[in-house]
């Protein structure tokens, strides 16, 4: 069994346009990995606090990420999936956007940025509901963000919001299995069957 540590911070979101209408932003996130991956320690999915920023530009979450994985395969390397929730002036919460970012495979520390999208209003009734009731079309589960199969049936719109993450990928016991994921000229070795 090889081990992978993901250690870092969900820093926040840069969303001046979004924050001119919404008062605050929160984020639900999940680290989604394949069936060969087991979480040994740590919280793979959680929700941040709601930040009502004074500058109206940066929502600060400063949410710790610290997950210890064990894996038998490199298939379906963890992905970070986000659901950003906006709070309006009446303290109603509505989905502002979804996002997905692939966690890098090579060990190291990275600053990741994730752009967001949301399901578009299909009918004018839905558009009116969003405008006046704050009810927006939402996905039933975050798994739909990570799966690419269902995207073809979706109509979406982009959201002016970028989620920022600082994350370290730390490997243990991958090299004895002949795995090279760091940047080098040698070809990448065996993808599966780490045993």
């Amino acid at each position: 069994m090889a081990e992978v540590h993901l250690v870092g911070t969900l820093l926040g979101a840069h969303a001046p346009t979004l924050l001119s209408a919404a008062t605050g932003l929160a984020c639900k996130y999940a680290l989604v990995a394949g069936p060969a991956w087991t979480v040994i320690e740590g919280t793979a999915s959680a929700q941040t606090h709601v930040d009502v920023p004074s500058d109206g530009e940066w929502a600060v979450w400063s949410h710790p990420l610290d997950v210890h994985f064990a894996t038998r395969s490199l298939h379906a390397w963890p992905k970070l999936v986000f659901e950003v929730v906006a709070q309006d002036a009446l303290s109603r919460m509505a989905v502002a956007g979804y996002g997905l970012v692939q966690v890098p495979m090579a060990p190291g520390t990275y600053r990741l940025e994730c752009t967001l999208w949301r399901p578009a209003c299909a009918t004018w009734v839905e558009a009116l509901k969003r405008q006046f009731l704050g009810v927006a079309p939402a996905l039933k589960s975050l798994d739909a963000v990570a799966a690419s199969a269902d995207r073809a049936h979706m109509v979406t719109e982009s959201v002016p919001c970028t989620v920022h993450v600082e994350i370290s990928v730390i490997h243990r016991g991958l090299t004895p299995h002949g795995v090279h994921v760091a940047a080098s000229r040698s070809t990448a070795a065996g993808l599966a069957g780490l045993g």
Partner: peptide, 18 residues
């Protein structure tokens, strides 16, 4: 020695946030 691979620091400076 403990078997950990830390890799490189790809962030310019490790600033936490805004």
């Amino acid at each position: 020695k403990f078997g950990y691979q830390l890799g490189m620091d790809h962030t310019d400076s490790l600033t936490a946030g805004a």
